[in-house]
Design a protein around this nucleic acid. Structure first.
Lengths: 206, 206
DNA sequence: AAGAAATATTTCCTATTGGAAACTTAATTC
DNA sequence: GAATTAAGTTTCCAATAGGAAATATTTCTT
């Protein structure tokens, strides 16, 4: 990932831009907190999770990086909520006052043949919504191998240009600047640009 | 190396208690879905995540259980949302194929002294997100009696004009067209327009 | 305070992961 | 249709995780 778009590094730092959580991700610390909060000894935790005492100890002390299966045992055994694991150890406000500013064009880029995504608020993890500013590169329905389908719901707002919005269960519909659509993502959906220049949209998934 | 996460012989019988069943979670399947949905080859995914092609392949084919660090690389590299990883592969066809188009200016209006909201996709109920196109009428911080606080998380995108974004725990920050912010709504927040004309923003709450 | 008990860490070893490269399969091109 | 190219899988091996038991540390008891 060496592709930074034409964005001067200087701007990136501007003011309070990107002061989110920089996740060092101390899984161990987190696990220990959780275990202790349940008043469990390593031995008990071991019984519940099926992981060896020693393994638990090492995990908590960040001496090893547990495998996914191990993490799952932890989650099940200790009744941990997943995001809990990936979120920051209670910096007093577990999720109370987060804020992440993304300057125009400073999102985290990701390109596909058909779209050019720019993820907004990429510094924040555990978001309920995932916002993208996306340039629609595709010009024809044929450029897609298949419908795009995934979990969740999506909001689409046309920032500039115009698009044709194809969905699995509806007739294609043309959307111009300022128009928007809200839909279930399990339903196949794809977009193409219909304007001179590639259309740009705001795309929010939840 | 050919361990299928089924039921280990020793554990099979013990009905007594907890025995930390081995992951019913098909991480690999999930990862593959996600990668393909982004039209990435293993090679590209490898570059983005920093994991070897072979490793990715094995993960997707459930031949190995990636370490936590590996999972993190996946998450970061592919821009995966955590719960996405742990949620079951889209079996829960909860709401199906809804769609709601809102033409520019055709939203459901609602006015307050300080804001002029236009609710998008108002036909659809039970949405995870509530999108508004809002004109910011306020011109001074004093026009607000108190902080606005409510549940959830909010995404704010400046469509036109410029605003000053006040939050309870941070310094006010100026946002121009194309800038965006993501924040927890329990934290007090208000906006004022700083441009000639009232600024217009897209506001999504979840 | 010394010993016992409980809890946590470390050691040692085997099993598994993760990477480089070889190999296979599928898609294109000539 | 053979030859290339691209995408994915498998192999081999070094690095590391996970478990059992030994060791260290803390916490009770008496």
């Amino acid at each position: 990932m060496s592709d930074q778009p034409q964005s001067p590094p200087e701007l990136q730092v501007s003011a309070a831009s990107h002061e989110a959580i920089v996740e060092p991700l101390q899984l161990g610390k987190r696990v220990r907190e959780i275990r202790l909060s349940q008043n469990l000894t390593l031995e008990e935790a071991s019984k519940r999770t099926g992981l060896a005492r020693s393994t638990l100890s090492k995990i908590e002390n960040e001496q090893i990086s547990p495998t996914f299966t191990a993490v799952n045992k932890l989650v099940k055994g200790l009744g941990i909520d997943i995001p809990q694991l990936f979120s920051q150890p209670s910096k007093s406000r577990s999720s109370g006052g987060r804020r992440d500013i993304t300057r125009c064009g400073e999102g985290k880029p990701r390109a596909t043949p058909t779209y050019e995504h720019e993820m907004l608020a990429s510094q924040l993890t555990n978001k309920k919504m995932i916002p993208y500013k996306t340039t629609v590169r595709a010009r024809s329905f044929d450029e897609y191998a298949d419908w795009v389908r995934h979990d969740g719901e999506e909001l689409l707002y046309v920032l500039s240009g115009s698009i044709r919005f194809y969905t699995e269960f509806y007739e294609p519909i043309d959307l111009a600047e300022g128009d928007s659509a809200y839909y279930d993502c399990e339903m196949g959906h794809t977009l193409i640009s219909t304007s001179e220049t590639d259309a740009v949209i705001l795309w929010v998934t939840a």
